[in-house]
Computed example of a mutant assay.
Amino acid sequence: MDAMQVADTGHRVPKTYRVRTEIEAILGELAEGDPVPSERDLAARFEVARETVRQALRELLVAGRIRRQGRGTVVSRPKMLQPLSLSSYTEGALSHGRIPGRLLVSWDDVPADADTAAALGLAPGSPVMHLERILLADGERIGLESTFLRLDRFGGLRADYDPTTSLYAAIQAAGVTFAAATERLETVLATPREAALLECTTALPMLLLHRHTTDSTGAPLERVRSLYRGDRIAFEAVLRE
């Protein structure tokens, strides 16, 4: 097969795309955790430069098909699907057979900036509770969640809430109902700090989810900024007419 084979569309197929397709066929015959052939072996098999193989592997890494393990590369499990719904991260992870977890980064009272104040119905500078936590799936770091809550309404959480568990469950246990949410999803790159917390590089595409939630009375509950590794998670929504 020529490295720049002409496709049915009449356009030339980039060499990297052809190599990536060939590697994907190899991955289809392997199981999760199996080692991926080395760059040298793949370059020899496809008679291409190692840089071509390296680029194809980078694309497969971003796509979540493979992952780094030590000094090598292995086949990754499929991306975790997280629903765009009022369910919590915990519920979403459990529904796909994953074990959810969280690591607390910080839990502070901070003055609300203009966006947070508007989302929570407060005056700018009002004190709000801020929780920053790393989201885990089967022990792997896949997201960084930053949650802002009204201090005058949820300050009592400090007494007995375990921040490594579901915040939604704790709020619902207090008799509060999550009724509606507005979400915005976009692609971004992580800052050096965020990449360090998520144990990835700043070149890895991220999915950034903004959420404003209200209760059954229409009162604002939270403002959430969640950053997810684009190679480990995908989102899905059920649409009905």
Rank of each mutant, 00 (worst) to 15 (best):
L81P: 01
L81N: 03
L81T: 13
Q82W: 10
Q82S: 12
Q82C: 11
Q82A: 13
P83Q: 05
P83G: 08
P83D: 06
P83F: 11
L86K: 06
L86F: 06
L86A: 03
L86W: 06
L86Y: 05
S87E: 11
S88N: 03
Y89R: 04
Y89K: 04
T90E: 11
E91R: 11
E91G: 04
E91I: 11
G92I: 10
G92T: 07
G92S: 09
G92F: 03
A93M: 12
A93L: 13
A93F: 10
A93K: 02
A93S: 07
L94V: 15
L94T: 14
L94N: 02
S95R: 10
S95W: 01
S95G: 09
S95Y: 01
H96S: 12
G97A: 06
G97T: 06
I99G: 00
P100E: 03
P100D: 03
P100N: 04
P100S: 05
G101P: 06
R102E: 06
R102Q: 11
R102H: 10
R102L: 08
L103N: 05
L104K: 08
L104N: 02
L104R: 10
L104W: 05
L104C: 04
L104T: 14
V105R: 02
V105D: 01
S106A: 14
W107Y: 08
W107S: 12
W107I: 10
W107M: 12
D108G: 04
D108I: 14
D108V: 15
D108Q: 14
D108T: 15
D108Y: 08
D109K: 13
D109E: 14
D109Y: 11
D109G: 12
D109I: 15
D109P: 00
V110Y: 01
P111H: 07
P111K: 08
P111Y: 08
A112P: 00
D113Y: 02
A114W: 05
A114F: 09
A114N: 09
A114I: 15
D115A: 15
D115G: 04
